[in-house]
Design a protein around this nucleic acid. Structure first.
Lengths: 207, 207
DNA sequence: GTAAAGAAGTGGTCTGACCACTAGATAGGT
DNA sequence: ACCTATCTAGTGGTCAGACCACTTCTTTAC
C-alpha cells in the first residue's frame, strides 16, 4: 500500500499516509487513530516501521499514546516543538548568557502586545489579583504573557523562564507596589510609561 | 544504563542520553554518532528502541542517516520539519498570526539591541553592503539578527523565519531605500527613529 | 445486583533474521 | 610499484514473532 517511492524510507511514507488519513477522515484532536497492528496490516508494512513513524510524531507532540488504550491525535496548540528544539539548541554556553536579555525583551514585547490588545476588563482583573494575592515574579509574568495572547511568545517565555531559573541568579527582591504600578501603567495604554515602569521593576538602567 | 525512570518510555530516555552524549563529547554538525547496534549495547536497550529515538530525531531534522555509513549530527537550521509541521499545525489562523507578530517583534528587539551595542563600525559595513548588494528581506534581517549578537534571538528568529516562509503569504515588495533608511536610523542611536522606520518598512500602522 | 475473575485489545520492548549499501582491505593483473 | 577488481566487515532498513504491562469489556461467581 505504501507507495514505496524509490529512496524513500517506509516510516516517512507512513507519516504521509497518516497525514492523508487524518485529512480525509476529518480526524480532530482527541480522536483515535487505528492501532499499530492494524496500520501495519492496512499499509502492508512491519509494525516496527509503524512505530518509528508514530514515535516520531509523538516526539513532535502531534499524537499521544496511552498504553492499553490506543493512539490519539493531540491538540496541536500544546505541541512541544519549541520545547524540544530548545533543549537541543540552547545547550551551548554562549547562548545561556543571553537568556536574561531575551527574557526581558520578550516580557516587554508582551507588555506592548497587551497595550495593543487594549483589554481593559482583563487588566482590571489583573489589578485586583495583584492587590489581593501573594505571588512570585514568574507567576506575575506568566499572567502577563498569557494576556499578550500569543502562543509562540507564551511557549518561548516558558522555556526562557526555565532556563532563567537554572541560572540561579541572586534573588532580587521586588516590591509588590512595582507590579501594581506596572499594571496601572498598562491601563494608560502609553507604551513609554509602561516601558519606564518595567525598567524600574527590573532595575534596568535604560528606560 | 538508561535510567528507566518510572513511566518513562525507553526511546525518550535514549533521546536524553543522546543529548547528553552530544553535549559531553562536544559533537558538532557533521560529526558521527555511534551506530545503532553500539548504542543498543551501550545503553542496554533493544535496537528497535534506539531506532525509534533516532527516527524521531531524524524527522525533526536534528540528525541525518546514511545507509551503509552511519548517523550524523545535522545543521539545525534545516527546515524539513517546518514543512511537516506547517501542514499539521499552522492551519488555524491564530497560529499564523502569531508567527507574523512574533517575527516582527523579535526583529524590532534585535534592532533595539543593536542600538545598545552601539557598534558604529559594523553598521558602516552593513550600510555599504545594503548599498552595493542585491538581497532578500530574509538576508537583510539575518544580518540584523546577527548584529544583535544574541544567540537566542538568532536561533528563534531562524525558526520563525522558516515558519514564516511556509505560510506563503503574498509577497510584499520593499524598496531598497527602506533598508538603507533603516540602517541610517540605527546610526542615529535613537530608538524612536528606528522604530518609525521599521514600521514603515514593514508597512505597519503603529509607529 | 454486585464484585471478582477472565478475555481481548493495545502499546512497549526485545530478539533475531535478512536485505541494501558503503568503505576499506585484499588479491590480482599489468 | 601501481592500478583495478573483488571481497568483507560494518551500517542502516525492514520485517516477523514473541513477551510484557496495561486498559477495557465481558463473563462468572457470590
Amino acid at each position: 500500500m505504501v507507495s514505496n517511492q524509490v529512496g524513500s524510507k517506509v516510516y516517512i511514507e507512513i507519516v504521509k499516509q497518516l497525514r492523508k488519513m487524518i485529512e480525509q477522515d476529518g480526524l480532530k484532536p482527541g480522536d483515535k487513530i487505528p492501532s499499530e497492528r492494524e496500520l501495519s496490516e492496512r499499509l502492508a508494512v512491519g509494525r516496527s516501521s509503524v512505530r518509528e513513524a508514530l514515535r516520531a510524531l509523538e516526539l513532535l507532540g502531534l499524537i499521544e499514546t496511552r498504553r492499553g488504550e490506543g493512539t490519539f491525535i493531540r491538540d496541536f496548540r500544546s505541541n512541544q516543538l519549541v520545547q524540544l528544539l530548545s533543549t537541543f539548541i540552547l545547550q551551548d554556553d554562549k547562548a545561556r548568557k543571553d537568556v536574561v536579555e531575551t527574557k526581558y525583551l520578550i516580557e516587554m514585547d508582551c507588555l506592548r502586545l497587551i497595550i495593543d490588545r487594549n483589554n481593559d476588563e482583563k487588566l482590571s482583573l489583573l489589578k485586583s489579583w495583584v492587590e489581593q494575592q501573594a505571588f512570585s515574579d514568574d507567576e506575575f509574568f506568566l499572567k502577563i504573557v498569557d494576556l499578550a495572547d500569543n502562543h509562540l511568545f507564551y511557549r518561548i517565555w516558558n522555556i526562557l523562564s526555565d532556563y532563567y531559573q537554572s541560572l540561579k541568579l541572586p534573588t532580587v527582591e521586588i516590591e509588590k507596589i512595582e507590579y501594581s504600578k506596572l499594571v496601572e501603567a498598562l491601563m494608560t495604554n502609553e507604551e513609554e510609561i509602561v516601558r519606564r515602569q518595567y525598567a524600574q521593576l527590573r532595575k534596568l538602567s535604560n528606560g
